[in-house]
Design a protein around this nucleic acid. Sequence first.
DNA 1: GACAAAGCGGAACAGTGCTCCGTATCGTTC
DNA 2: GAACGATACGGAGCACTGTTCCGCTTTGTC
Lengths: 182, 182
Amino acid sequence: MPPRKRADAVRNEQTLLAAAAEVFVRSGVDAPIREIAAEAGVGMGTIYRHFPTRADLVVAVYRHQVEACASAGPELLSTSDSPFAALRAWVDLFVDFLVTKHGLANALQSDSSGFESLHAYFLDRLGPVCGSLLEASEIRDIQPYELMRGIGNLCIGRDDDPRYNPRRLIELLLDGLAIRKS
Amino acid sequence: MPPRKRADAVRNEQTLLAAAAEVFVRSGVDAPIREIAAEAGVGMGTIYRHFPTRADLVVAVYRHQVEACASAGPELLSTSDSPFAALRAWVDLFVDFLVTKHGLANALQSDSSGFESLHAYFLDRLGPVCGSLLEASEIRDIQPYELMRGIGNLCIGRDDDPRYNPRRLIELLLDGLAIRKS
DNA sequence: GACAAAGCGGAACAGTGCTCCGTATCGTTC
DNA sequence: GAACGATACGGAGCACTGTTCCGCTTTGTC
């Protein structure tokens, strides 16, 4: 079994999570490591020890919300008027999550840095949920991966541009999906 | 009137365009300036003098293709079975263009660096074309800006992932748009 | 050929990711 | 509570990139 963690390490990890959450809001998930370290009052080495890649830190910061989104799937399925309505509602939650985190949608699709594991985490955790909603809706024309990635992509960009509303486009996408169903 | 350019300046500009085109294919539109300079055999200062921002260089390299895409709009409108078919065909051209340029779709949406003017160029040149296609198709539920940006966003990402096919999603989007028409 | 203007090259600076190792702190044992 | 090995910390340092700036070179003209 793994040895118990040292008290200062546990403390630092909490401090870091709080600091990162703060900085992510202020400067986005791409904020310089140094900025997060400064906010937490620790050295950069400490961040890298606890969270070897940036994705690990992002995952840790947003884990609760991802879990909530995951568990909302089955719940919506049982409380909505129809499976497709549940899908719509779930997508809405997913979009809520993405658009409120500066640059998270970007990071999710990023082909550089160490964001692959972030991509993988979202997919592993939410993919099956999305899949079961698709299945219940009898939609077989698209895979969860593709739908989630498409939605993620549509959420990319500055969130203060009134000319671009990702929700509207995602709605169109779902409409397109709906007519395939029959 | 502006004084005639020096011969070496003209030569360098051509060399640079060729080198940039080459490097963009190899390393994407985010390739380091130094790499482009090396490929062209010039100093970095020379690049910045000819193309003050990266967007200027990208625009110059792809200008011909953007123009072709712009002029294809009216043409398709006059040769297609229906305005909506013309829209579909035009979107297909637009997607062709985006997916064959590594990272161009990314750059188009980028909120950092000096890519705003790239965004603006695409919008100014292709927005009206897209707009007239939308209008001819009697689609008033969406603005050209929003549609083009959505399409651009859907094209973001590594182009070698067989699980993700932007064209499929864009088709769904257009289907969603089609049912709004009636 | 001489000269001013235009253009060029790349050193230098700043911002960032990431590593590495000397130092500090912790937990345990006596 | 002192000593000591294990664990964790801090931040200097390196690599890489964007961008600027200025001394030097090339060009065109007279």
